[in-house]
Amino acid sequence: MGESAPLRLLSRTDLIDVPFPPAAVVAAVEQAYRSLGAGTAANPTKLTVGGVHDRSVAYAMLGRDTARGVVAMKTSYTFGPDDDRGGKRYTTMIMLYDDSTGAPIALLDGSRIGALRTPAVSALLARETLRPGARSVLVIGTGVQGRGALPHLLAANPGLDRLMLYGTHPDGIAAVQEELARHHPDRELELVDDPRAAAGQAGLVLGTAGPATQVAVEADDLAPGSTVILVGYGLAPSTLAGADRVIATSAAQMAVTGRDLAGPDGTLRPVDAELPDLIAGRAVGRQDEGQRIFAYNSGLVLTDIAVAHDLARRAIELGRGTEVALWV
């Protein structure tokens, strides 16, 4: 059956406006972590290859989610990773297979999947580590991840009611406001000029800025009992070194991709617990209200698979995409 079934191609245009509410995205990502925590999913180490003279970098990631009955492969390719003059190119794709029938499900452009999956992971990290009664959040950055941060945070943490944003790009700030209003028209966004001062008033600080940001919130800026989550940039290494507890989606991935957070001696603060174990109830995120917690958000392909699977299903139900008889 797998050799004769048509393959559904779902382009960026096919997927860009498929409805996928933040609460549903968070639920899909949480299910993936539960599967991993329960041992019913596999998330092998990614394969990496660098190009000649560091011209490009590519990754391949394979995963199986038995609960969903899905096997998938994600590939990502970046050309000119250090090109700041407009020559950088990034593409990512996910191939889904039905592991109960052997049939291909779809080949998807992966850009929207990452834009949805990452803020959902942050929302779960926040849910598992926030101090009880925490009501304020500061988001640093207005790029793709900054724009999706608040709707997903609120889906898992509805008690947050002071929503602060620091950004320097007017279009990005407007996009964050628009995305928040689309999902929560009753919520107000507070723009701040001094992110380090605002961090001292926040129960949660989310660093989503790009690598060019000049913002680096330090450990001494943070309020007692606060949680910081690093997605991109905006948090200084001291927020990790000075944390009372460190949580990661994957300690192994943090050891590889978090090297810029290492201390002066080159060592990285060890991870105390991983998110799959928190969700499965085998570990706790916070041990007391006064702890300052650092959480590191790096992607696991299983979460991409969960989001891609649900997004593909929603797109196919809408009649999106093109069927290709690739194996005929």
Rank of each mutant, 00 (worst) to 15 (best):
A223P: 03
G210C: 03
G232H: 10
D244H: 14
Y233L: 10
L222I: 04
S226V: 06
T208Y: 02
T239Q: 09
L240Q: 08
A241C: 01
A241P: 00
G234P: 03
A223K: 13
D220P: 00
P224M: 11
D220R: 15
S226Q: 03
D220E: 15
V215F: 04
P211D: 12
E218V: 00
S250N: 14
V228E: 06
L230A: 14
S250L: 13
A219E: 14
P224G: 13
V246E: 06
R245K: 07
L222H: 00
L240E: 03
D244C: 10
D220N: 13
V215D: 09
V231K: 03
A243E: 07
G210K: 05
G210A: 13
A241M: 07
I229R: 00
A248S: 15
S226I: 05
Q214M: 03
D244M: 13
V217A: 09
A241R: 14
A248N: 05
A236P: 01
L235N: 08
Q214I: 02
I229K: 01
L230G: 12
P211E: 13
P237R: 05
G232F: 01
A241I: 04
V217G: 02
A216L: 02
G225L: 07
V231F: 03
G234H: 07
A248V: 10
A209R: 04
S250I: 14
A223W: 10
T227Q: 12
L222F: 02
G232A: 11
V215Q: 12
T249G: 02
T239N: 07
T208N: 05
V215L: 09
P224R: 13
A212G: 13
V228W: 02
G242C: 09
V228K: 11
V215I: 14
A241F: 00
L230P: 00
G242F: 11
T249A: 07
S226G: 02
L240T: 01
Y233C: 07
V217R: 02
S238Q: 12
A251R: 14
A243V: 10
P224N: 13
D221M: 01
T249D: 05
S226Y: 01
G232V: 12
A219H: 15
A209V: 08
E218L: 00
P211M: 06
V246S: 06
A248D: 04
T213M: 00
Y233K: 12
L230D: 09
G242R: 12
A216E: 08
G207N: 10
T239P: 02
G210I: 14
G210W: 11
T227V: 15
V231I: 15
P211C: 05
R245F: 07
D221N: 10
A223T: 10
V217F: 06
T213Y: 00
S226A: 15
D221A: 11
Q214K: 13
A243P: 01
V231P: 02
A209W: 00
V215E: 11
L230S: 15
S238A: 11
A212M: 11
G210Q: 01
A212R: 15
P224I: 11
I247V: 15
